[in-house]
């Protein structure tokens, strides 16, 4: 019966994952390997193709009506940033990185909303102290977003804009500092992470484990969080045994990734803080500001 309960938990989290995350690993890998019936993604590999592809990056095509509604809520708030930016007489090539960065912020804010909905679907999460729910999201959400970038990436580039665009790693590396430094550590992490060959049902459990970390700073009531995490960890261990019977030590290897993630997030937050100082005209999305402020 205990194993049956763990399997039911795995199914529940997988269903929530499919409900809240529009671009699954299965779909992303199909796009990356050219196996989709739809058109191939638009490739951004230089400034010219970036300018051509900008209309896609603005995320105008949204997968579902529910996402469309929620997304407009987030972009309305963010629209003021692009408006303010248009008045500045910047060199067009200097401005393009900032515009791209603003688009990334809008998508990230939407992704935070998706992760929040997923977190709320973890059994027991919404019964936790509300302040602890906030703390778990504040500290966990960037780690979750970085894990979720892995399926979109290969060694040559990454899918963006819900899989409609492929941006090359070389192009990202050619941007001016510190923009060029932002995604390279995520590529390095993703290439290694992808060798574990997790599927979407494994990912759902792993994301829940990361969210339910009882050692986040400032938690008021750690015990119920650790109890929830322990149950999900059991479900993950069983899932990996059943889904990857030949992959030795996969559970242990996966848990080790959580240590790598903390360093990547710390470095990421420092880069954003650097950007805030160096790019006078750059504004941070209010939701992302909330998350990053006093994080590490």
């Amino acid at each position: 019966p205990e194993a049956a309960d763990l399997r039911a938990l795995s199914r529940h989290l997988y269903e929530a994952y499919l409900k809240y995350f529009p671009l699954t690993k299965a779909k992303a890998r199909a796009i990356l390997s050219g196996k989709t019936a739809d058109n191939a993604p638009f490739v951004i590999h230089d400034m010219k193709s970036l300018l051509e592809g900008e209309q896609f990056i603005n995320c105008k095509q949204i997968p579902t009506p529910e996402h469309q509604q929620q997304m407009s809520a987030l972009t309305v708030a963010h629209g003021g940033l692009s408006g303010a930016h248009q008045g500045l007489e910047c060199n067009i090539l200097d401005a393009v990185e900032l515009r791209f960065f603003h688009s990334c912020q809008s998508r990230s804010a939407e992704a935070v909303r998706e992760v929040t909905e997923f977190a709320k679907s973890i059994p027991g999460f919404i019964e936790l102290d509300l302040n602890d729910q906030v703390t778990l999201l504040k500290y966990g959400v960037i780690e979750v977003l970085i894990i979720m970038m892995a399926p979109l990436m290969n060694k040559d580039g990454t899918l963006i804009a819900y899989g409609q665009i492929f941006m090359t790693r070389e192009f990202l590396k050619s941007l001016r500092k510190p923009f060029c430094q932002m995604l390279e550590p995520k590529f390095e992490f993703s290439v290694k992470f992808n060798t574990l060959e997790l599927d979407d049902s494994d990912m759902a459990l792993f994301l829940a484990v990361v969210i339910l970390s009882g050692d986040r700073p400032g938690l008021l009531n750690v015990k119920p969080i650790e109890q929830l995490q322990e149950t999900v960890l059991h479900a993950l261990e069983l899932q990996l045994k059943l889904n990857h019977p030949d992959s030795l030590q996969l559970f242990a290897k996966l848990l080790q990734k959580m240590t790598d993630l903390r360093q990547i997030v710390t470095d990421h937050v420092h880069l954003i803080q650097l950007l805030k100082k160096s790019e006078m005209e750059m504004c941070l999305h209010p939701l992302l500001q909330e998350i990053i402020k006093d994080l590490y």
Binding site: Q70, S72, A73, L74, V76, A77, V112, R113, T116, K120, I126, L130, N131, Q133, V134, L137, K138, P286, L287, E290, I291, K293
Partner: peptide
């Protein structure tokens, strides 16, 4: 609570364009 107003709203399903 004020420091994490939007996160609170997202958790309590009370996010609207005006709030954001």
């Amino acid at each position: 609570k004020e420091k994490h107003k939007i996160l609170h709203q997202l958790l309590q399903n009370s996010t609207s364009p005006v709030d954001l």
